[in-house]
Write a protein that binds this DNA or RNA. Structure first.
Lengths: 308, 308
DNA sequence: CTGAAAGCGCTTACAG
DNA sequence: CTGAAAGCGCTTACAG
């Protein structure tokens, strides 16, 4: 910028004005500056500008992995908001390793991101407390944080499990299995609660054996229907069931391509992950605009997609 | 940092030394500085440091969308290199819109990313020429760029199509269809070339009708086998074929979950997209280290995954 | 071992 | 309409 100024024979400030389209520059002067800019191939250094300005116009997004299409879709939703609002995105994936999450989040904070959207790993997130106090707006998505107060945008997994179980009951099933990954995780607890609610409402007493199934113990299991906790479990269940699939009705949590091409087709519980990303982004923007309110938890509906 | 210095009763430079672990500070002084740092909750502003240092320790990654698992996997490979080398990643998706690509790339260059990995949209990339000349290392992945000289890391689609077609021929097929999306795209040209090579090698003259199929015209088409250009086409083909799927052997370009659960299972042509991302990252790092060599094109093997 | 000054590339707050 | 000075938060190159 200094070079441009001296080549155009003007002061630094005048170049700044031209670059920013500020008023108060003679067309003639502006033309000279423009010429110098082109001759020198000058491009304003955004980082320097932002250092002076105080904000960075940058958000950070941290997820397990983009290979998970749901998380990719959350990113997509967040990015659409970031694009509208003129933010650029730093991203990083954790592979569910809490250390990686912490390193990434702190590295982004050190770059002074204005805000952070995190799909959290299991475990405590108290390392973020001082950053949040320092003013980094933070929103959690898909899963709630632990040991830290912050906004969260979540799918209504409990309501989904209730709907899925209710659907199976309505179709005449009573021996309904529940296939979960980590029993202690937030999602597992939510699904178990929704399942229990639907069973109780129908007056069915669930046999503990139905809710402690594993893919390996599925063949010949005493159930006529099955609710699977995530896509990987749905896949594992279909593999384990093999020909029995025609005997056992399967409802999977999380939609997937090709679900309708299987025989019989698989019904799924599905939510809109793009909406989760958008909502998280909007929440962040509002916080950045100064909205002060206690942290809130927003739930996005989970619906049954029936296939037959 | 100024505040820390005055609280500890030392000069700015001493704080800098402590923060950077530079030698030449009395343990006693260091302790005082550390105390002040903790009292004030000080965190070094990485952006300011990098402004002074000249580099940003940042790379940019631009793709169509992460919803595409292949592109998500390229990101994963690149990120692993970035993590090893201490870079943070800016990302953005284009949805195949050239304008969005250009805006993103220029925004990242304005932030002075050290390098850029791009899965390019169709169309010219000459807007990048001046940036590349200005020193932004650039590597293209999955698809080659147009109208700009730069490194590229690509799957060997031609070799893959040859292998896939050869496999179908070996299984006794002669009327082999080729289902392509955009006829003029790089991938389509490569697949058509590989297909033609395999057919010629087997002494089969391909009927033009075989290579101009669309999902809509597939039912009752005069072929006994089909090579699909991407996952979406594979899905569309399976849908269009319906029960005929047992009559028409399908080989799809791009592996997908559940491929083995379909009946009959679908064989696919597959490459390792994580390797493409890693290779692109390594190339970038070498360029950043000053390696001068003409732009090169690296091909990653495409192999047939047979399922029956 | 410690520090005062200059500067990275820009903007802000004034003054002319 | 135009510009000289100070400063964003750090590091670099010296000097003591």
């Amino acid at each position: 910028m200094k070079d441009v100024a001296s080549r155009a024979g003007v002061a630094l400030k005048t170049v700044s004005r031209v670059v920013n389209g500020e008023p108060g520059v003679t067309p003639e002067t502006a033309r000279r500056v423009q010429g110098a800019i082109e001759d020198l191939g000058f491009r304003r250094n955004e980082s320097a500008r932002l250092l002076r300005t105080g904000r960075t116009a940058t958000l950070g997004f941290i997820a397990d992995t983009w290979i998970d299409p749901d998380q990719a879709a959350v990113y997509r939703g967040l990015e659409s908001i970031a694009r509208e609002q003129g933010y650029l995105l730093f991203t990083g994936s954790t592979d569910r390793d809490p250390d990686r999450e912490e390193r990434l989040a702190l590295a982004m904070c050190a770059r002074r991101v204005d805000g952070l959207v995190i799909i959290p790993t299991p475990g405590s997130h108290d390392y973020l407390v001082s950053e949040i106090e320092a003013g980094v707006a933070t929103v959690f998505a898909l899963r709630p944080p632990e040991l830290v107060q912050a906004d969260a945008v979540l799918p209504d997994e409990r309501g989904g499990a209730r709907a899925g179980t209710g659907h199976l009951i309505a179709r005449g099933h009573r021996e309904i299995g529940l296939l979960l990954a980590e029993p202690g995780s937030y999602r597992s607890r939510q699904l178990r609660a929704g399942y229990a609610e639907a069973m109780t409402a129908a007056g069915i007493t669930a046999d503990p054996a139905w809710t402690s199934l594993k893919p390996g113990t599925l063949a010949g299991a005493p159930v006529t229907a099955l609710l699977c906790g995530d896509q990987a479990l749905t896949r594992a269940a279909l593999r384990a069931l093999g020909d029995e699939h025609s005997r056992v009705a399967v409802v999977g949590f999380g939609d997937f391509e090709f679900a309708d091409l299987l025989s019989p087709p698989v019904s799924v519980l599905s939510y809109d992950p793009v909406l989760i990303g958008r909502t998280a982004g909007e929440l962040l923007i509002r916080r950045l605009a100064g909205e002060e309110a206690p942290p809130r938890r927003i739930e996005v509906p989970v619906r049954l997609v029936e296939r037959r």
